[in-house]
């Protein structure tokens, strides 16, 4: 972070304020709780992508493969009688971590463009597979009949989305703190080193490929948790959860927020979803026009997404 004259204490204070503000929307915007939970979930998904893209430098447009698998894992578990929500999250986490680790052998090699295409290819193949296995997944009609038990046996998922919001908030916060820990650990620093100069890290004896594989595995697991949250809070899994479009959308969200900055994914999700929702309400037919203009303007005004632009702004003011 380039914020110059901020003490680490102030920084932590700001982070706390950010989360408190998010939490307070429970009372401030009771009409928008479902939107807010979906923003949180996509935020977590974007953070997971950031771990792969921003920290490990693995360009992927196929991350929905894990989001979707997590969603199906949690959805299928609940559909087949085990409705306890946290076990669904755990299952999604484990399944996607395993899957991510296995696939990392395909992905942690080659140049950017190659990785990009392989991730797209894998994601599309997963989508086709889910369609083919419609007996299990429900195919394009979606996975129906998901019943989630009350959280902790106490809080039922309600029509206003209150439980869903609190549940999503707590899980996303926990996952985020975990990611924060990973990123600032020696492992995270090694990733940053690899991102900046792969050759030097190799030269000082860092096991580059293994580190990248672990990062991809973590990233996949987080994406799976995000997918599971989406499945549980909406009690439905559509095949779109696995689609290329979802992968592309989350990439847009992350790039809009700013990569490699941890909060970029969350900020990106907040801005993108609110702007999207706002434009779509104003003009259901042609909101894409305004959203497109918005993206173009963001690129033109500040490179590196919103976080990139903000960090420059701050530096200038302080200099």
């Amino acid at each position: 972070m380039k914020s110059l004259s901020l003490t680490p204490g102030q920084l932590t204070g700001l982070e706390a304020a950010f989360w408190l503000l998010l939490a307070s929307s429970f009372w401030l915007m009771p009409d928008h709780l479902t939107l807010l939970s979906q923003i949180l979930i996509l935020g977590l998904f974007a953070v997971s992508l950031d771990l792969a893209l921003g920290y490990a430098g693995i360009l992927t447009v196929g991350h929905a493969a894990f989001f979707g698998c997590g969603a199906y894992a949690a959805g299928l578990l609940a559909k087949h009688g085990w409705g306890e929500p946290f076990s669904g999250l755990l299952l999604a986490l484990l399944v996607c971590a395993a899957l991510g680790y296995a696939l990392s052998y395909l992905i942690v090699r080659g140049a950017d463009l190659t990785r990009l295409m392989i991730t797209i290819g894998v994601c599309v193949l997963f989508g086709e597979l889910a369609n083919r296995l419609s007996g299990i997944t429900g195919g394009t009609d979606g996975l129906q009949g998901i019943v989630i038990d009350p959280v902790l046996g106490l809080f039922e998922f309600d029509l206003w989305g209150k439980t869903a919001f609190v549940y999503a908030f707590v899980v996303v916060l926990a996952m985020f703190l975990m990611t924060r820990l990973i990123v600032s650990s020696p492992f995270g620093l090694a990733l940053r080193g690899i991102h900046d100069s792969r050759k030097r890290m190799q030269a000082i004896g860092s096991p580059v490929a293994a580190r990248l594989r672990m990062a991809y595995c973590f990233s996949a697991a987080l994406a799976g948790v995000a997918g599971a949250l989406m499945a549980q809070t909406s009690q439905f899994v559509g095949i779109e959860a696995l689609s290329f479009n979802r992968s592309a959308e989350i990439l847009i969200i992350l790039v809009l927020g700013g990569t490699g900055r941890l909060y970029g994914g969350l900020i990106g999700a907040i801005v993108y979803m609110l702007v999207h929702d706002w434009f779509a309400d104003l003009n259901p037919q042609y909101w894409m026009f305004w959203l497109g203009i918005f993206l173009i303007v963001v690129v033109m005004v500040g490179r590196g997404g919103i976080m990139g632009a903000l960090s420059r702004l701050v530096r200038i003011r302080r200099a």
Binding site: L6, L11, E15, L21, M29, Y263, W278, L310, S311
Partner: peptide, 21 residues
Amino acid sequence: MLKKTPVIAALALACGLLGTP
């Protein structure tokens, strides 16, 4: 992490504008 407060404020404002009819 200093820079997000104005964004949040703007977002909160935007949400207010959405309003209910």
